[in-house]
């Protein structure tokens, strides 16, 4: 059976205000939540694996991987509850490692597990590296389809046809498996993922699925293997080092205008942009 590895990261809740302290961020009291793009990555994998006609048949095994402190794995449990088959945790504070080191860990797990596909988010909402997936593909020597808005699995040629969001519009790229995909926001629209088994016009529910009660119960019984960076041969934290984190200067306070006429007048004489 095809094996899909999906990478997931936990991040500080992006809806909470940041706390700045001593030239860095104070994360001691943040609420940790899954990275949204990784929820989309798991949803993509589930849609690729699912046979909607016979709920029991799955066309791929989904392995969920996170580099995080082993004790703080709520996000892993959530993804297993959504439908991931088993988990791998690399027990480490991922913030201590740079994107190059994180990518080496992911590539090694992909090799050890012998997977056919790796799906990552396009971006971690906190670090905004936008590079882990590309690095993993390079380390594996695989083709990549980044910034995916639509994924179509052609069973016949065992390749993926991916609509990618690029600067000029949408590019369609075909990659033979094994391959790596990084997913963008629109991959979770109702008809964005097709696996060649479900009817082509099948509509999934918009957005990443919620875990069912049954899923939550099952998740507790699913296997999660824990390894360390050293087990994966990664000793160095890498060459990207944070020196300081600062709060951006706030924009000067603006003003409310009472009418369109006043707005146009101010744009012309004050802001001088007309």
């Amino acid at each position: 059976m095809t094996k899909i590895l999906v990478t997931v990261k936990r991040i500080p809740d992006p809806d909470e205000n940041l706390k700045f302290a001593n030239g860095g961020l104070d994360l001691s009291s943040v609420k940790w939540v899954p990275n949204a793009f990784d929820e989309y990555a798991v949803e993509t994998a589930l849609r690729l694996a699912e046979d909607v006609g016979s709920k029991k048949t799955k066309h791929a095994e989904i392995i969920v991987l996170s580099i995080c402190p082993a004790k703080q794995r709520q996000h892993m449990t959530q993804f297993l509850a959504m439908g991931g088959d088993r988990g791998v945790i690399v027990d480490a504070n991922d913030a201590d490692y740079d994107t190059a080191a994180i990518a080496k860990m992911i590539a090694k797990v992909a090799q050890d597990e012998g997977v056919d596909m790796v799906i990552t988010g396009k971006l971690s909402q906190d670090n905004e590296g936008n590079q882990v997936g590309q690095r993993v593909a390079a380390l594996l020597g695989w083709p990549q389809a980044c910034f995916a808005a639509e994924v179509d699995w052609d069973q016949g040629s065992n390749s993926l046809k991916v609509a990618r969001e690029v600067d000029d519009g949408v590019e369609t790229k075909q990659v033979p498996l094994p391959a790596l995909v990084t997913v963008d926001l629109r991959v979770v629209l109702p008809t964005s993922v097709r696996n060649g088994i479900n009817p082509a016009d099948h509509k999934f529910t918009d957005g990443p699925r919620l875990a069912s009660l049954r899923g939550i119960t099952m998740a507790k019984r699913k296997k999660v293997k824990t390894v360390t960076p050293a087990d994966l041969g990664v000793e160095s934290a890498g060459g990207e080092k944070t020196t300081t984190i600062n709060k951006p200067a706030a924009r000067a306070a603006g003003q409310m205008v009472g009418s369109v006429e006043e707005l146009v007048e101010k744009l012309a004489t004050e802001a001088k942009v007309l």
């Binding site: 190059a100 936008n130 882990v132 690095r135 390079a138 990549q144 990618r164 600067d167």
Partner: peptide, 23 residues
């Protein structure tokens, strides 16, 4: 940081084991 360079430069950086500062 165009979509093309965001796509290919991390790939090259990984092969050359180099750090990359994005955007």
């Amino acid at each position: 940081a165009s979509s093309a360079l965001r796509d290919c430069l991390p790939r090259a950086a990984a092969v050359l084991d180099a750090a990359l500062c994005a955007e």
